[in-house]
Design a protein around this nucleic acid. Structure first.
Lengths: 220, 220
DNA sequence: TCCGGGCTGTATCACCCTATACGAGATGGC
DNA sequence: GCCATCTCGTATAGGGTGATACAGCCCGGA
């Protein structure tokens, strides 16, 4: 597999095709790098099917700190949550690369469903998949153990930025312990210690400054 | 005041009516207390609209420990995630009280959407609301502080099940410290201690066994 | 009515995390 | 080459949490 993987997850090919088939109900739009698709707090009925690029979904806390929820790559949908329930956006979306999307509007969706009920089913499948991904993240974040939280982040990074390696999967991005700390809500020292421990457990390895996730018989 | 047991969230009345209007597409079922609606790992196209009772949704970790995601009370929907995406259930659902539901099956849903597109829209609104709730939970779970985690849960409960009270907002749901513990990923003892501390800080109060969130000048 | 079970409030102890500090090594600018 | 900065590794002290245990309370069942 030489194809570059982006984003924290993607949906299966069949579903992508089903969505693409209804592209005519939306309109194509482009967002330059570092522009905003939508912002936390605003009310909107629009949602987006990413064709190309990378969109960062994050929630800002009251104190200004940012929690990155997901990085959405090609063939994913974002913004549909607040588009369908009609409440203010609970997250912000920003293109962190030049991005192309199809913008849909939920306003006339009910009428579209009448003639294209399979589109409704596809959308429900997408939202269900998102629910699954988030629920599994919750399972890990529910733990107070730094090791669980850090492994969850590493696994997520693996899906985004790892390449195959004889011993497992190598993260091509270089993240500092400090960055891991802020992303997992722990301290820098704890990250250092935890990575040390993971290395002793043979779960990870450091190769040339990069983190390598060792192949495991592992489970869920 | 009697101790009412209710779930951790619910959907608005209008949406409930829209769902109820399509009850004929499902079938009524009853689950006795401590029976299982569905189990993590199984594949099923069924989902449930709770009419009466209380259903506990939880994820079991590889080590057997349980993370309670939600307590679904009357007029909520559960199980639709795995029902629509066709993958194994990522959570289990158990009736913790005698429960009545309408069981829907997604198998013929597309055909139903053709004649009743508004049903699809209603379902999308429900899944969107669930997505919102989970995302906001993630924001707070990113913190390791038990106090943050517990206050997040209390605030969530307040939005759904609190009534006005001279001193603030009174939660009409009764959740045990044990339940709070599994929902916030802390220990029962810590919950007790934290609630104690919150009481000393005048942020909450206990009235007749129910938690009262005191009015504050503060923000979220 | 009595009894048993679930819930809450404490207490104790061990452990791990956080904050803080300092040194070594790598890196980059001048 | 030299110094500033960043990053990683490590040490210490302090504190909060988890595990465990036990007592008091309320409530429901026999």
């Amino acid at each position: 597999m030489t194809k570059k993987k982006l984003g924290t997850w993607r949906i299966d090919r069949q579903l992508v095709e089903q969505i693409s088939r209804h592209a005519a109900f939306g309109r194509r739009r482009k967002f330059k790098k570092n522009t905003v698709l939508y912002e936390q707090g605003e009310i909107s009925t629009r949602f987006y099917f990413v064709l190309k690029g990378l969109v960062q979904i994050s929630i800002f806390r009251a104190d200004g700190s940012e929690v990155v929820l997901e990085l959405m790559g090609p063939e994913t949908i974002c913004g549909e949550g607040s588009a369908f329930d009609g409440l203010p956006r609970f997250s912000s979306a920003a293109a962190i690369e030049d991005t192309e999307v199809i913008e849909f509007d939920t306003a006339k969706m009910t009428e579209i469903f009448r003639s294209h009920p399979e589109f409704a089913t596809s959308l429900l499948r997408v939202t269900s998949l998102k629910q699954r991904v988030v629920a599994i993240r919750l399972k890990h974040l529910a733990s107070r153990e730094p090791q669980d939280r850090i492994m969850e982040l590493l696994t997520r990074l693996e899906e985004m930025f790892a390449i195959d390696h004889p011993k497992g999967r190598l993260l091509v991005t270089h993240v500092t312990h400090e960055q891991i700390a802020t992303m997992t809500g722990t301290s820098r020292v704890t990250v250092t210690r935890t990575l040390q421990r993971l290395r002793e457990q043979n779960r990870i390895d450091i190769v040339d400054g990069h983190i390598l996730l060792r192949r495991r018989a592992g489970v869920s």
